[in-house]
Design a binder for these strands. Structure first.
Lengths: 260, 260
DNA sequence: CAGTGGTCTAGACCACTCA
DNA sequence: GAGTGGTCTAGACCACTGT
């Protein structure tokens, strides 16, 4: 059980406690969903103050290994199945085969209930990165559609789509929160903007406070940030979307031909 | 400066201190590289115990906004330019134009000094995910090449490449730590395995302790994990690489054609 | 040396959960 | 009500950084 510290052990007590708990988690002695000893119990076992045991649990939480639940305990995190986003979500074929948007079909495939909502449609000056990718002068007005995607009522993705006003024009994408079958890309196609290729720029980082609350992200979980640009066959960009994904619930999966 | 807590403020003191410091950082009052007030100074200003001020700084550190330096202070994190990994790093053209591996050319483009090292070459049973992607039975022996990539002496990526023994055979990829001009993909091509397309599966998570030390990752910085599979023109997978990237130093950038 | 962050103690009160 | 995590205090000693 609780091994005494070896004489030569220079690790702080909190590190040592964290290391032993991590070991038990990775070995499987503490299975996903399992409860760890309470802070007070750990302090007793290791002969430390409660704060020291608490510090150890904080280390594991920051690593994303455990989650604390107020009044209940600290539990080994379970990894639910990942959403897998691929480039084929932009293909017309995928749209027409299912009649569903790619998000909806992926969620239903997992036996969960999808929900997508457009939270706002505004006209704003394009952020620098967006203007750059759309080939517009800085601060040009664009249509911004703010979306949120949920699975079983749990928010898993948020995104903002930026559309040049000339592209959106008087079409539904400039005004309608519900875009009908096939979603926004079907409407783009009706506007003469077929997707011929895309660019996806991907980074990962810790969520900011707005994302932490908006996506209900537990501590120790990063987000994937995806800056997506759609090009028509003439190599003209006509839409940029910034997606923020909970990294514990989402993965990306690309199949890419290589031109030698 | 230090605003007193509003009566209705239900935030814990540590949260409030963190929120005010974050505000100053995002506004630019505290510029990247700038030093925050010391823990003791914050405690004095806000009339709290040092631990409470320390807790506030811990919140910002976990968000990746600041880094503590022992004996020096706490500083606003600077974001160095990102490495941008794209699919074109696998193209023969890119190899032959520069004569450099994609990693080396990206780092030199940024005016930094690249270094890549093969840390080990072993024969091991393929991990389940790898065997699956190579179309091999579980635990089939494969050649595993462990690599580390540095820019200006700083480790930025680690990876393990898994190669079926029939593919590696008696070629240098099975034994040589230095693979010569064009790197491993030039050698694969000499073995008759030209890359026709690739699959890249991407997730993000917090680093485990081994990665934290091996990549010298500061707190609050996640990693990108990239599971890469190379296919030859016959749609046969011939190599899988698991790359782990410091997310604060690396981004991905894909250009993908869409087949409608 | 003074000042910084890193760790720790031994308490305390609060908010939440569950039987 | 008993047990849990969340927050906080007021100290202490250590390790590290600068001058």
């Amino acid at each position: 059980m609780t091994s005494s510290p070896v004489p030569g052990d220079r690790r702080p007590a909190s590190r040592r406690i964290a290391d032993e708990l991590r070991e038990q988690i990775t070995r499987g002695d503490l299975p996903p969903g399992g409860r760890l000893p309470s802070e007070r119990e750990l302090a007793r076992r290791y002969g430390t103050a409660r704060n020291t045991a608490r510090e150890a649990l904080g280390i594991l939480a920051a690593e994303g290994l455990v989650v604390a639940q107020h009044g209940r305990g600290v539990f080994v995190r379970t990894r639910p199945p990942l959403m897998r986003l691929g480039a084929d979500r932009y293909s017309r074929q995928a749209r027409e085969q299912t009649g569903l948007s790619p998000f909806r079909s992926e969620v239903t495939r997992q036996g969960r209930t999808p929900h997508a909502e457009c939270r706002s449609i505004t006209r704003i000056p394009a952020p620098a990165e967006v203007a750059e990718r759309l080939g517009l002068p800085p601060d040009t007005l664009v249509v911004a559609r703010e979306n949120r995607y949920l699975a079983d009522g749990q928010p898993v993705q948020v995104g903002i789509t930026y559309i040049p006003v000339e592209v959106a024009a008087a079409s539904p994408v400039a005004t309608a929160t519900n875009l009908g079958p096939g979603g926004i890309y079907a409407r783009f196609e009706e506007l003469g903007h077929r997707i011929a290729h895309i660019r996806e720029e991907i980074t990962a980082r810790m969520p900011n406070p707005a994302e932490t609350t908006g996506l209900a992200i537990p501590p120790g979980v990063p987000v994937l940030e995806l800056l997506h640009t759609s090009y028509n066959p003439d190599h003209q960009p006509f839409e940029v979307t910034r997606l923020v994904l909970r990294a514990d619930l989402n993965g990306l999966d690309y199949h890419i031909p290589i031109n030698n």
